[in-house]
């Protein structure tokens, strides 16, 4: 398969997943605002949400104050923000469009329709826009695309590159989101206790659509240690780092079998998965959750670069 085709499929998935993440972050921010804080006001998490999406610098420069309508403009509609829902949808569609022949009609139409509907959405006066609805719409489009893809695409090389894109993007997003809020999971906070922090944990889980599944898995109360375990090392949680890395490793293995040779990327993924499989949540927290997450984002990034290098992405 042409490297460009593989690359476009990979990035279509990455951008669509990124749009999904942005929508989740916005939902979380919106919810935070509705919560009372200890000082008697209402909460605002916009700053940390911008940080989690890695776009704080761009925002500060253009808008300054992190208030609702600014953040929504920036995160939903601003073409200058590469992580805005608009940018992600456009980039996903452009990537898909240049490999139109490699996609089924269902997949293309799911994406194309999302793009066209978003354009309609953009024409709606902002005052009539309901943020939770926009977020909900985005998550549905993302789910629809993924469903169409899994149900209609041939499970050939392209299938694996597409899913690799999802895996790499999702583990990056989960790790970044966790890193922004890592301090609420620290033992010191645990000792301080107090009900105020509960909603932070709950919101974190909600943002990852893992709120209910957490309770199904662990029952009872929120405990920082179990939350961290759930989102990092629990193989049954589809947002956990280990889950995404396992996915990446499997798709790379499938490719290696098809090609009859392993690449640097195959080995790197296996190594990363090995480390996670051996890891213990107590050790991770003892050694520093922030350091662990920073390290993971770097390693995951390296895996992304290695995939690009091994399969000749980009002009050579």
């Amino acid at each position: 398969m042409l490297s460009r085709t593989a690359e476009n499929l990979y990035w279509t998935a990455r951008y669509m997943e990124r749009a999904d993440t942005t929508a989740r972050l916005l939902e979380m921010g919106h919810r935070m605002q509705l919560m009372p804080t200890a000082d008697g006001g209402l909460g605002s998490e916009w700053t940390s949400i911008l940080a989690a999406s890695g776009t704080s610098a761009g925002f500060d420069e253009k808008y300054g104050e992190a208030v609702d309508h600014n953040v929504i403009s920036y995160m939903v509609f601003d073409p200058a923000n590469p992580s805005s829902i608009r940018s992600c949808l456009t980039a996903a569609r452009n990537n898909a469009r240049s490999v139109r022949t490699a996609l089924t009609t269902e997949v293309w139409e799911a994406l194309n329709r999302a793009y066209l509907e978003f354009n309609d959405l953009e024409r709606t006066p902002r005052s009539q826009l309901d943020l939770p609805q926009v977020c909900d719409w985005t998550r549905r489009q993302s789910a629809l695309l993924r469903g169409c893809f899994d149900n209609t695409q041939l499970q050939d090389e392209g299938f694996h590159f597409f899913n690799l894109g999802y895996a790499i993007e999702r583990s990056d997003n989960t790790a970044r989101l966790l890193d922004v809020k890592y301090y609420v999971l620290l033992p010191t906070i645990d000792m301080v206790g107090g009900g105020v922090d509960n909603y932070q944990w709950a919101t974190l889980l909600r943002a990852l659509s893992s709120h209910r599944s957490y309770h199904w898995t662990y029952g009872g109360d929120y405990a920082p240690r179990t939350i961290a375990h759930f989102l990092i090392l629990n193989r049954s949680c589809p947002r956990a780092l280990i889950y995404s890395v396992t996915e990446a490793e499997q798709h790379l293995n499938e490719l290696a079998q098809m090609h009859g040779c392993r690449t640097e990327a195959t080995s790197l993924a296996a190594g990363l998965l090995g480390e996670l499989a051996e890891a213990d949540i107590a050790d991770i927290i003892d050694q520093g959750l922030h350091e662990f997450l920073t390290g993971f984002v770097q390693q995951n990034g390296r895996l992304g670069n290695e995939i690009a290098r091994s399969y000749l992405f980009g002009k050579v």
Binding site: L2, S3, R4, T101, L312
Partner: peptide
């Protein structure tokens, strides 16, 4: 036949190659 764009092809020494996931 493969449908390529300029960015898919490159020259190395005596020949033209296309970038594929299996190598040039």
């Amino acid at each position: 036949a493969e449908l390529v764009e300029g960015q898919d092809l490159f020259v190395d020494g005596d020949f033209v190659y296309m970038r594929t996931t299996r190598g040039p």
